[in-house]
Simulated scan of single mutants.
Amino acid sequence: MMKITLFALAALAVVCALPQDTAQAQPPVQIVKQDSVVDVDGYNFEFETSDGTSRQEQGEYKNTTDQQGLSVKGSYKYTAPDGQQISVTFVADKNGYQPTENKDAPAQ
């Protein structure tokens, strides 16, 4: 579970570290929604920021003959530097990280 948490934090750091135009001062991004629940069987978290970036994820511990370990489902969205809306849904399980870009993401 720690690897998934580190991955989530690394992904967030990459999104937050995108180059910004220093010529135009923009207001700092605020967290407008944040929720999380963690227990022995898994976790669930979501957040949204004032610039429209959001992420939600659910992780569940599986202990079956088919799979043993963490199974994660989630999605994230953000606005790319060129203004394009990026929206990705993903599954991470015994088959690895499997992202799917959502082409019909609504514009903000």
Rank of each mutant, 00 (worst) to 15 (best):
Q34L: 10
Q20L: 07
V14T: 10
A25E: 15
S54G: 05
Q34A: 12
A10F: 08
V37E: 05
D21E: 00
V14H: 08
K33F: 13
A10H: 12
L9M: 11
A25S: 15
Q34C: 10
E46H: 14
S50T: 08
A23L: 09
T53D: 00
E48D: 00
T22G: 08
V37K: 10
Y43F: 06
Q30D: 10
A13P: 01
A11H: 14
F7K: 09
K33N: 15
D41R: 01
T22K: 03
D39L: 00
D39Q: 00
A10K: 08
Q26F: 11
F45Y: 15
Y43D: 01
G52C: 07
L12N: 12
L6I: 06
L6H: 07
I4Y: 14
A10D: 15
D39C: 01
S36H: 04
T53A: 00
L9P: 02
E48W: 00
S36D: 07
A10T: 11
I4E: 13
V32A: 05
V38R: 04
G42C: 05
V37I: 06
V29F: 06
T22W: 01
G42M: 03
F47V: 04
G42N: 03
Q26I: 01
C16S: 14
K33D: 15
C16A: 15
V40T: 04
G52W: 07
L12F: 14
L9H: 04
V29Y: 05
D35K: 09
L6A: 09
Q20E: 10
T22D: 09
A8S: 12
K33L: 15
V15D: 11
T22I: 08
G42K: 02
Q30V: 12
E48G: 02
D51C: 05
L12Q: 12
Q26H: 14
A17R: 12
F7M: 09
S36V: 04
F47E: 01
V14N: 09
K3T: 12
I4A: 13
Q26Y: 11
V32N: 06
L18K: 13
N44K: 15
Q20G: 10
D41L: 12
S36I: 04
V29E: 00
F47A: 02
L18P: 10
D51S: 05
A8T: 13
A11P: 06
G52N: 06
V15P: 07
L9A: 15
D41G: 02
V40A: 01
F45R: 13
V37T: 05
C16R: 14
S54T: 04
A23R: 03
T22P: 05
D41K: 04
P28C: 02
V15W: 01
D21Y: 00
V38F: 09
Q20A: 10
L6D: 08
D39F: 03
C16I: 12
T49V: 11
T5R: 11
L12K: 12
S54Y: 03
A25L: 14
V37L: 09
V14L: 13
F45E: 05
L9R: 13
S54Q: 03
G42Y: 05
F47I: 02
T53R: 04
Y43L: 01
A11G: 15
L9K: 12
Q26D: 08
P27D: 13
A23M: 10
K3R: 14
S36T: 06
D41Y: 07
D39N: 00
V38P: 02
Y43K: 01
L9Q: 10
T53Y: 02
I4F: 13
D41S: 02
Y43H: 06
V40R: 01
V32E: 06
A10R: 10
Q24C: 08
F47S: 01
C16T: 13
N44T: 07
L6Y: 10
